[in-house]
């Protein structure tokens, strides 16, 4: 089983520290690809003043564990870190970090994208945006489904 760190948390995270911990004590790790997602201050035509993230404690963790297992079955990974924030976040805040370490860059790039694609379409999180005209739940995007589906075809 690939070494992994998984955290669902309210507090912010330090990308440099997460990456350092991912690399530590893995002499064969020659490549780390990391993705950080941020809260946008604008969503289409709507201004966003804050975003609230809800999750399903228990199922969210299980579902991300499953996505990591799937990625590790496809590529020779040496370490995976996934941190996802919940609660109320303001524009510019970090939401999600995915870091993937491997011996070479190809599998690290591919697995990072794979994990993000399935995290967006499979892990139970929900976003609610608040703007000048009130609050509304973010709708699921077809483009996210398409991104995840291409790994299966």
């Amino acid at each position: 089983m690939v070494r992994r760190v998984l955290s669902i948390q309210q507090q912010d995270f330090d990308v440099a520290r997460l990456q350092q911990e991912l690399v530590a004590e893995e002499p064969e790790m020659g490549a780390v690809v990391s993705f950080t997602g941020y809260v946008r201050g604008r969503s289409g035509d709507r201004e966003v003043s804050s975003m609230e993230l809800e999750h399903y404690p228990g199922m969210t963790e299980r579902s991300i564990e499953g996505i990591i297992d799937q990625a590790a079955a496809r590529w020779p990974l040496l370490g995976v870190t996934v941190v996802h924030r919940v609660g109320v976040l303001t524009p510019g805040s970090r939401i999600v970090y995915v870091g993937v370490g491997s011996s070479h860059r190809g599998s690290a790039f591919a697995a990072a994208e794979y994990i993000m694609d399935f995290l967006k379409t499979g892990a139970p999180f929900w976003k609610k945006e608040t703007g000048p005209t009130g609050a509304c739940w973010v709708e699921a995007r077809n483009s996210d489904e398409t991104a995840a589906r291409r790994w299966r075809d």
């Binding site: 996802h84 939401i95 967006k120 976003k127």
Partner: peptide, 10 residues
Amino acid sequence: VAFFPPVTGG
């Protein structure tokens, strides 16, 4: 058992 809308995390 849980009921929820399509997910929108990440």
